[in-house]
Design a binder for these strands. Sequence first.
DNA 1: CTTCTTGCAAACCCTTTGCATCCTG
DNA 2: CAGGATGCAAAGGGTTTGCAAGAAG
Lengths: 143, 143
Amino acid sequence: MVNESKSFREICQENGIAVTHQRQVLYEVMKSMHGHPSPEEVYARVKKKVPAISLATVYKNIHLFVESGVFRKMSMHHGSVRVEMNDEPHHHMVCSKCSAITDIGEKELGLVPKRNRLADGFLVERYSVDVIGVCAKCQMAST
Amino acid sequence: MVNESKSFREICQENGIAVTHQRQVLYEVMKSMHGHPSPEEVYARVKKKVPAISLATVYKNIHLFVESGVFRKMSMHHGSVRVEMNDEPHHHMVCSKCSAITDIGEKELGLVPKRNRLADGFLVERYSVDVIGVCAKCQMAST
DNA sequence: CTTCTTGCAAACCCTTTGCATCCTG
DNA sequence: CAGGATGCAAAGGGTTTGCAAGAAG
């Protein structure tokens, strides 16, 4: 707990942003979530601890965190901004029926790309793979 | 031209939708576009040929086309619905600076996944790869 | 003729912004 | 204290919907 507060303070100092109560709770709540929560979902959770917080503040700080590299924005298939909560290198399985998105570990997926320069001099940072298909639940449903 | 009209009629018949003037022009305009046009961009073009058309009609028909499998919706990094105009198997290079999206041929990318069932019984239909990085233009700009 | 489609405007959802107030550094 | 952060409400994009009038089959 002391550690977590400390590292959050450090993160803020590194990025030149103030350590506010809202910010800290937001950070901790997000860290504790899994998957790809929407701003509304994050807001709902944070509100339990800081009832007076506003959605706007949640949005502003999610952007701030993303810009600072604290969290990563994921390639959205959802209709809203999503943040990546999974620290492990992974990709996504997207259900074409119900749009559910599930993580799949990089190793488990088993790709073998890795070039760092492509056509037109595009400089590669990373690969993000979406496996489009049908999830188990929807396969059941259509049987 | 006769051919194109004919194939559009067939498409409509196969999907049980009426062949309207708007629909036909929309289809032809979309077929003639490249990249990942937004509904507004499509609307602007169609409007030149059918001035009275409404944005709502464009939206309704884009959805219809996507549902019928005439066009494919692409995994959006843009903030709006985009449709895939490239018939060749390909993936996308997404610039992390300017968000520009460029197609890259499947062969050129050279990935080799291809399994058809993954964790949790997920049934694979296809892979969609986003190569995240910096485009040539933005590399220049930051020099 | 009946049903599907269009166009228009209002409604909606998600997100951003302006501004006065409040808090951190 | 000064500048940044918050909360609120209003504004903004993109997209959808309800409905009357108009085409398609």
